[in-house]
Amino acid sequence: MSPVTAVAPAAAKALPQTWRAFDVAFASDPVCIGLARRITRAFLGLWNVNDELAESIVLAVSELVTNALAHGSGDVGFRLRYPDGELRIEVTDDNPTPAELRFAGDDDVSGRGLFLVAVLSRKWGVSEDGKTTWCIFRIPEGRA
């Protein structure tokens, strides 16, 4: 007799919907930008987010983590939450000066990160204490 007990499908109970989420803390090092992208891509794959939307989400993660490194101080906190239909990205550093959307000139080599986040995401913002920049992506039903 097998030590595994079989349960008939009719008797099986549906598991409650659980949040899909993760939190990561990085030392202030440019290497963490690529690491944040890889971690995000892996989780989005596990959560079956379609490739096109996943690329936009990964780009937003890259821009927010890059901003935290360039303008923040201390370690970088990175959180992704996907409870139900919306995916929320939060990146935190120790700098209380809030991130600001600005428009870069044609010859500027940087300054487009938050503009990209604003265009790609459904909504973005900064926490009251100025230390966390966040954005939200809507995941269409049946696409994840």
Rank of each mutant, 00 (worst) to 15 (best):
70 A>Y: 12
95 N>M: 02
73 S>Q: 12
56 S>V: 02
67 N>I: 00
84 D>G: 15
110 S>C: 02
70 A>V: 07
90 E>D: 02
96 P>D: 00
108 D>F: 10
70 A>T: 14
108 D>I: 13
108 D>L: 11
58 V>S: 14
72 G>R: 12
77 G>M: 03
68 A>Q: 07
92 T>H: 06
103 F>V: 01
100 E>C: 04
58 V>Q: 14
65 V>E: 07
104 A>T: 00
93 D>S: 14
89 I>F: 06
80 L>V: 15
91 V>F: 01
68 A>N: 07
71 H>Y: 15
57 I>M: 05
58 V>H: 09
101 L>V: 03
64 L>M: 15
59 L>T: 15
64 L>T: 05
62 S>P: 15
82 Y>E: 00
105 G>A: 03
102 R>D: 01
70 A>F: 01
67 N>P: 08
73 S>N: 06
99 A>V: 08
80 L>F: 05
85 G>K: 04
93 D>V: 01
100 E>M: 08
94 D>G: 14
55 E>N: 05
83 P>T: 11
84 D>Y: 12
66 T>Y: 09
73 S>F: 04
98 P>C: 05
109 V>I: 08
111 G>V: 10
64 L>Q: 14
61 V>C: 05
68 A>D: 12
102 R>G: 11
80 L>P: 14
98 P>E: 02
104 A>S: 13
86 E>S: 04
88 R>G: 04
57 I>A: 10
62 S>W: 06
72 G>M: 01
106 D>R: 09
95 N>F: 02
76 V>D: 05
72 G>D: 09
111 G>H: 09
83 P>L: 12
82 Y>H: 04
103 F>G: 00
67 N>F: 01
91 V>K: 11
107 D>Q: 09
84 D>N: 06
98 P>V: 02
90 E>Y: 07
110 S>Y: 02
76 V>M: 02
55 E>H: 09
63 E>K: 13
106 D>T: 10
97 T>W: 13
87 L>M: 01
103 F>L: 06
83 P>Q: 08
106 D>N: 11
62 S>V: 09
87 L>D: 00
109 V>L: 04
66 T>W: 06
74 G>L: 15
89 I>S: 12
55 E>A: 00
57 I>D: 13
71 H>E: 07
67 N>W: 11
62 S>D: 11
83 P>D: 06
65 V>F: 01
92 T>S: 07
62 S>C: 10
